[in-house]
Amino acid sequence: MFTTTVTPRFGDADGLKHINNIAISEWFEEARNPVFRIFTPDLNLSYEKWKLILARTEFDYLAEMYYGEDVEIRTYVIRIGNSSFTIGQEARQNGGLKAKGQAVTVHYDFLNKRSVPIPDDIRKKLQEHLITEDQK
């Protein structure tokens, strides 16, 4: 599991100090970078080096989050397929689960415009961060 701490920005909040729903999408995207580094360590976005494409995201907003209090984003793998894998994420503030989400990501060859199998060495690294529902 990877953990990222986010300090909400003033612009992430509304007049009641509630965090806007769009902030979760941005925070979760940023917190996926350690997983992306497994595939592309330098995060180089060239067609020759970048190997991932986002296929689907979903978010569940469970409770309000507030400006002025750090948010812990937990990122882990919940499923590994042949050419795709699913990333699970949680946003926690003051110890409470406030939002959760998933992102289906595909190992992709941009030059040939097709998905490709996840190599065994990368699969092993993903498995190190695999957490099933009963392990949470």
Rank of each mutant, 00 (worst) to 15 (best):
V35I: 15
S25Y: 12
E29C: 06
H18L: 08
E30P: 01
L43H: 04
F39D: 00
I19W: 02
W50D: 02
D14W: 00
L54C: 12
A13D: 07
S25E: 08
G15Y: 04
D12L: 07
I24N: 05
A55L: 15
L16F: 11
L45N: 10
S46G: 03
T57G: 10
D14L: 01
L45A: 14
A31K: 04
P41R: 03
I53S: 11
N20P: 03
N33A: 12
N33P: 02
R56L: 10
T57E: 14
I24A: 12
E26P: 02
N44C: 13
T57M: 14
E48R: 13
I38A: 01
K49T: 14
S46C: 04
N20Y: 09
D14S: 01
N44W: 08
L54W: 12
P34Q: 05
F36L: 11
F36Y: 15
E29S: 12
T40M: 05
D14T: 02
L45Q: 14
D42T: 15
N20G: 07
E26T: 13
W27V: 03
D12Q: 05
I24R: 03
A55I: 13
A13K: 07
A13Y: 07
E48D: 15
A55N: 11
E26L: 12
I22D: 09
L52T: 03
I53K: 09
A23W: 01
R37E: 15
E26D: 10
I53G: 08
D12P: 00
N44T: 12
W27F: 05
K17Q: 13
G15R: 09
P41K: 03
E29A: 14
W27G: 01
G15L: 09
E48L: 11
D42N: 13
L45F: 14
N20A: 08
R37P: 02
N21K: 06
I22H: 08
I22W: 08
W50A: 05
P41T: 05
L43A: 09
T40N: 07
K51S: 15
W50Q: 02
T40P: 00
I22G: 09
F36N: 11
P41D: 02
E26H: 12
R32K: 10
I19C: 01
A13P: 04
D14P: 00
S46H: 03
E29M: 10
G15W: 04
I19H: 00
N44A: 14
L43C: 03
L16I: 06
L43K: 08
P41N: 03
L43G: 04
K49G: 06
N21M: 06
D12H: 06
E29P: 01
T40A: 10
V35F: 02
I22A: 13
Y47D: 11
N21Y: 07
A13T: 10
A55K: 12
I24M: 10
R56W: 09
H18A: 09
L16N: 11
K49I: 10
T57P: 03
I24P: 00
D14N: 01
S25C: 09
L54T: 14
R37C: 10
Y47Q: 12
G15T: 07
I38N: 00
R32I: 04
A13E: 07
W27P: 01
Y47V: 14
G15E: 05
F39S: 00
